[in-house]
Simulated assay, not measured.
Amino acid sequence: MYEGSVAEPQKLSFDDPVRALNVRLVNGTVNVVGTEEASARLEVSEIDGPPLIVTLKDGTLTVAYEDLPWKGFLKWLDRRGWHRSAVVSLAVPASANVEVGVVSAGAVVSGMRGRTEVRGVTGDTALVGVSGSVSAETVSGNLEAQAVTGDLRFQSVSGNLTVVEGAGSSVRADSVSGDMVIDLDAGGRPTDIRLNSVSGEVAIRLAHPTDTRVEANTTSGSVSTAFDDLRVTGQWGAKKITGTLGAGNGKLKATTVSGSIALLSRPARDNLDELDEKVL
């Protein structure tokens, strides 16, 4: 059991095991790195405004402002509380579950195997090498996921979603005006991709060869595909891309109202290896 406050730059180490992490920050930056140790380390390198409250109880490490609850986090828009900032770095067990909430703050989470949940009002979030399931909800914050292998869920009003070198089998995203760029290679496993947007543009790059059923449609936007086996129908107004790639074990469904949809082909792994050799 630990409870204290941090009002100035400080480093803390925790001997008790950490199974879950909860961080809630306004302005500044939070960095979370997964390690193979059972304990955790915290460094607050910059802080301005009210102190951060730090507690470790029943395996849950919490670093947060006292007046910033996790419940109803996305509605926390009280400008009186914005006169604060902190730069926080944490090293926690990679198996821990992580909850990060940011208001006008950047967040980076890397190397975690447990469940990761992110809530952001206006802050951008980057996920790197995360293998556990991911759930992200933002108002206008962007999410970039690189080399993420777990299932990904994203919901936003105007935030953009970018997935680079994704290897997960499931991506589900909903946005009003945010753009979505998905680069996915699940290593031959069936994938479940479901994307919905009102006015945002959608671009999906699939592995070649790939194995999925495709249904992509837009009410007034444009569509394009790099796959000859897919059909494009509709010339005025609503347009669709439909068809089956490979055995059709996976599913890709993308829907927009006025945004464009593009399906791109990722080069075969053999071609990528040859390209790497030429570059080296």
Rank of each mutant, 00 (worst) to 15 (best):
W82N: 09
E99N: 10
V257H: 05
S258C: 07
R172E: 15
S199H: 08
L52Q: 01
D15K: 09
K253N: 09
A96Q: 02
R231M: 13
N160Y: 10
D192Q: 14
L90C: 02
K253Y: 07
D211K: 06
D276K: 15
T116R: 08
V130C: 09
D58R: 14
V63A: 04
L68M: 14
V176M: 11
T225A: 08
V30G: 01
Q146W: 02
V128C: 08
G150A: 09
V279Q: 11
L12W: 06
P51K: 12
L264Y: 01
P93E: 04
T138Y: 00
V232T: 15
Q235H: 13
L56H: 04
V108C: 06
E215F: 12
F227W: 14
L230S: 05
R213F: 06
S258A: 07
L264E: 09
A254N: 05
G259A: 05
S258L: 08
I47H: 01
E215R: 13
V121L: 14
I47A: 03
S199A: 13
W236K: 14
E277W: 11
G123A: 06
K71T: 15
V181M: 10
N22P: 01
V134L: 09
S175H: 03
T225R: 06
T219W: 05
T29W: 05
A91T: 10
S13M: 13
S260N: 14
G101W: 02
S45D: 06
Y2N: 15
T35P: 04
E201D: 14
L52M: 10
R205M: 14
G234N: 08
D124C: 07
L272K: 04
G188V: 12
P9A: 11
S104Y: 05
G129L: 12
L74D: 11
I261P: 00
S85M: 07
T138N: 03
S156F: 04
P17G: 06
G81C: 10
N196L: 12
A38G: 09
R266M: 03
T242V: 15
E274V: 02
V257A: 13
G111Y: 02
R79D: 13
V279I: 15
I47G: 02
P9D: 11
A94C: 08
N271L: 12
S95L: 07
L74G: 10
T62F: 01
D179T: 11
N97A: 14
D276F: 13
G234Q: 09
G114I: 00
V176C: 07
V6Q: 02
V32C: 03
G49R: 06
G132D: 06
A136R: 00
M1V: 08
A247L: 10
V88L: 03
N196T: 15
G159M: 04
L206P: 00
A38C: 05
A207H: 01
L272Q: 10
V26R: 01
L280S: 14
P51R: 08
L52T: 05
S220R: 05
R205P: 02
